[in-house]
């Protein structure tokens, strides 16, 4: 695929292939083919990314118990879902845990992010490492080590232990997100506020905090989602009466496929999509605020 010209192309970045340039018809054919294959590849990828999700939603309205063939539209499974008291309880538990852990981890995760981004101090590196560990540790390891720890303390398993565990991994995610947002905020803004007569406290609440708020909310949404999402850690640290939704659903799945789960999963999908769109809208708003 030797090209015939040595003049670098001056095409805009957004348009077409980065290596496009004037070339012979033969080379152009291969280039077109390459582009075509690449686009096809991407298209297939996106289809497979969404195939399971779409299938799930479609078959939650299927009359048949089996997911092979379409036998007619029904809302029956959604109806049964809302009658399921155990699932309702699990949802309630999940929400209790998610709200509590979001509150705690957002508060202390934001605090540590502010300290790390604002000050240089001894122990900064160890804290960085400490925050990094919960992100990379496998959840199975996190689950068993917390179980062992609570067993050692004779702490009975329940809401408290779940919230402690979820907070332990959520602090890191909140801190990472808030720090990223803080790094985008011009540090001279608070200096400017000081210069105009605001003390540190006033400068933070009037300037730093409003600018940081979208980051904090994005962190909170992430913490909330991760808490609702978690199965493995929760499995080890939950006790009777504190079973969360993923744990309950997992148990049902292990017993076999039921259309009721399709319906529940579809609802969960829609809920998480709303959360994602919400958090992205927040981020967009915050980036618009940046000059």
């Amino acid at each position: 695929m030797a090209s015939s010209s040595t003049t670098p192309s001056t095409q805009p970045v957004t348009e077409g292939h980065p290596t496009s340039r004037v070339s012979s018809g033969f080379a152009s054919f291969w280039r077109q083919l390459g582009k075509f294959l690449l686009s096809g590849w991407a298209l297939i990828f996106f289809v497979f990314l969404y195939l399971p999700i779409v299938t799930l939603i479609v078959f939650s309205f299927n009359e048949s118990r089996f997911a092979t063939e379409w036998s007619g539209f029904t809302l029956q499974w959604y109806g049964e879902l809302f009658q399921n008291r155990l699932l309702g309880l699990a949802l309630r538990n999940s929400l209790i845990v998610a709200f509590s852990t979001t509150l705690i981890s957002t508060a202390i995760g934001t605090m540590v992010a502010v300290a790390l981004e604002r000050f240089d101090f001894k122990g900064k590196l160890p804290i960085d490492a400490l925050l990094f560990l919960p992100i990379i540790i496998p959840d199975i390891a996190m689950g068993i080590m917390l179980l062992s720890f609570f067993a050692l303390l004779n702490q009975s398993l329940g809401f408290v232990t779940i919230i402690i565990a979820h907070t332990a991994f959520n602090i890191s995610f909140v801190a990472v997100i808030v720090r990223a947002r803080m790094a985008d905020i011009d540090p001279t803004l608070e200096e400017a506020a000081n210069d105009l007569g605001a003390n540190e406290w006033q400068a933070f609440w009037r300037v730093g905090f409003p600018l940081l708020l979208p980051g904090i909310l994005a962190g909170a949404l992430t913490a909330f989602t991760l808490s609702l999402d978690d199965y493995v850690v929760t499995f080890f640290v939950s006790g009777p009466g504190s079973t969360t939704l993923p744990v309950r659903v997992y148990g049902m799945i292990r017993r076999g496929v039921t259309p009721e789960i399709n319906a529940l999963s579809s609802l969960l999908l829609v809920a998480s999509m709303i959360l994602v769109v919400l958090s992205l809208a927040l981020q967009r708003r915050s980036s618009r605020l940046n000059v």
């Binding site: 200096e191 400017a192 210069d195 409003p210 940046n290």
Partner: peptide, 20 residues
């Protein structure tokens, strides 16, 4: 004396206008 108690004001290099 901290900056907020000094009788001076600054025009910053990147202006540092409050975007919000």
């Amino acid at each position: 004396t901290p900056p907020f108690k000094r009788p001076v004001n600054t025009v910053f290099q990147n202006y540092a206008l409050f975007p919000h």
